[in-house]
Amino acid sequence: MKRKMTAGFVILLALTALVFGEAFVWAQQTVKYPTKAVEILVGYGAGGASDITARILAPHLEKILGQPVVVVNKPGGGGEIAYTMLAKANPDGYTLGLINSPATISIPLSRKVSYTMNDFAYIGNVIYHENLIVVKPDSKIKTFEDFIAEAKAKAGKLNVGNSGPYADDHLASLALQHAAGIKVKDTPFQGTAPSLVSLLGGHIDAVVCNVADIVEKVKQEQVRVVFTMGEKRNELFPNAPTMKEKGMNVVMGNYTTLGAPAKTPPEILNKLIEAMKQAMSSPEFIKKSGDAKLPVKYFSAEEIAKIYKQDTTALENLWKTLNLPTQK
């Protein structure tokens, strides 16, 4: 009995020391980070655009942080599994993850999930590319005006393929229809590739997708860009106007951002933000991501936080005005 009590006392003492020791370290602000491998959660399967982004970024972060940076694929629920894991992860800086707009924002709008956008802190944006409309090169839709006229002439039967129901591309199409006062027939596919197959075969009239999906296809003259939904014209397609030029305030695109759980201590977060800035400006990273045709675009943590806030409001409004399906 006595022995047990002694043992208990010793354990208590050790625990106290541990707790105070920890507090002492905090007080001194000398967090040693990282001391072990850092994980990046990716909500999509290996080989996809998000996965490749993470895998190209990881070795550069690794070099700066001095610890292994491991990409972990947790596909499922259109990214929901990974977003939830990131939101609930221990905020110690050892679990990071890729967040996407609009996917991360739109999932909670359409169904009940156990994370909110407030669960994330941002480290830096890696990818941005705007939405655009492509057609077959021989299509009679040549200009933005043609597209609108054709949509009106076909009275809701102009067939526009997208990469999945209420995913980024479909949302872009809905925003476009709302702003232009037209109605098209949205046909969802499982990803952009099968929708392009149907477009090339002449089974549908147009496809709404992102820049990186079709850069090469445009060069190979398999598809033609009609217009984009960017802030300004994309230098890759100088002849394609933006919707803004046409007097419609529709700016839609796809962001991929490195994030962490919201409660990550600021000193760790700052260290990561610094590392990210450095990694993305390194010539090697620029070369590697250029080879892989990734539409790399750096936004700082504050900039991207602002963008995500705007996007959240815009998507919430879209859901409300168009009465999009929800399951709650």
Binding site: G45, G48, I52, E221, Q222, D291, K293
Partner: peptide, 30 residues
């Protein structure tokens, strides 16, 4: 379809495509 159109028809072929894209090669008509 991968070699001639640059479009993967099946999941493993999609991975082959990303393997090529990483090296800056985009299969297609050319």
């Amino acid at each position: 379809p991968l070699f001639a159109l640059g479009l993967p028809f099946a999941p493993p072929v999609a991975i082959l495509l990303s393997g090529l894209m990483i090296h800056g090669i985009s299969p297609g008509p050319f």
